Computed example of a mutant assay.
Amino acid sequence: MNRSSARRPWHQHFETVGSITAIVVGVAALFVSFDQSRVMREEIRASIWPALQVDGFASLENGTLAIGLSVQNAGVGPALVERVTIRHDDSPVEDLDALRALMPPGADLSRTSLTGRVVAAGASVRPFELRYPAEESDDAIDVLNRLLSRWSAEVCYCSTLGQCWVASDDPGAPTMVDSCEGQPGGDF
């Protein structure tokens, strides 16, 4: 080794400056890559976010009063329904037979299973509908208001990425939860 090259300050050694520059550029590239992947994950989550809306309904058409539950996916991705909970006076209702027993007798029942179903973006499902012969005194809005005071419904569902939410018939956005397991639900 030449004595003159050993006495040069570190910044005059091209190899050392080049190595330090490469390390700094590599660390910066790693940070940018990590940040970009985080942003991409958020974009993917937002682009497939299901948003279920849960609503009770009552309608009066052609002498028939229809009462039931409607679940619509107003989001942009599919929703896998894991659990449906119906409550009457704050007590969970186990299944459709128990629900029917709590309603006035004489109804025709139509049913579509919701638990375990994938609800596509923009799709709507009516898990159950009870149809009664209407009386002249029936007003669908009054019937719905009376029912809403004693009944409530919530649906726990997940996205294709495994993120889960609970939507209820209360106004507002769905609430994010860790999972739908271990929470009460009925056979709906």
Rank of each mutant, 00 (worst) to 15 (best):
G77H: 08
G75W: 01
G56K: 07
A98S: 13
G56M: 11
T85E: 15
Q53H: 11
Q72T: 15
Q72K: 15
G75A: 06
E82S: 15
D89H: 13
N73E: 06
D97L: 12
G75F: 03
F57N: 06
L96F: 05
L80C: 02
V76T: 14
G56V: 04
L69V: 09
L102M: 11
R83V: 09
R83D: 13
A79H: 01
E94G: 09
R100T: 14
D89F: 12
H88N: 12
D55L: 10
L65A: 06
R83P: 03
R87K: 12
G56I: 03
G68W: 03
Q53E: 15
D97Q: 12
V71E: 01
S59I: 03
S70N: 10
A58L: 05
P92T: 11
S70R: 14
E61Q: 11
Q72N: 13
S70D: 08
G63W: 04
E61R: 10
D89K: 15
L65R: 01
F57Y: 13
R83S: 14
V76I: 12
D89C: 06
I86G: 01
G77R: 08
V84G: 03
L52N: 02
V76R: 13
A74Y: 10
D90F: 13
V54Y: 00
I86Q: 03
G77Q: 05
G77C: 04
D89E: 13
V84P: 00
D95Y: 02
N73C: 08
E82C: 09
G77A: 06
S59P: 04
G63A: 08
V81M: 08
R87I: 01
L69S: 07
F57A: 05
A101M: 10
S70W: 00
L65T: 00
F57D: 02
G75N: 06
L69F: 05
G56P: 01
G68H: 04
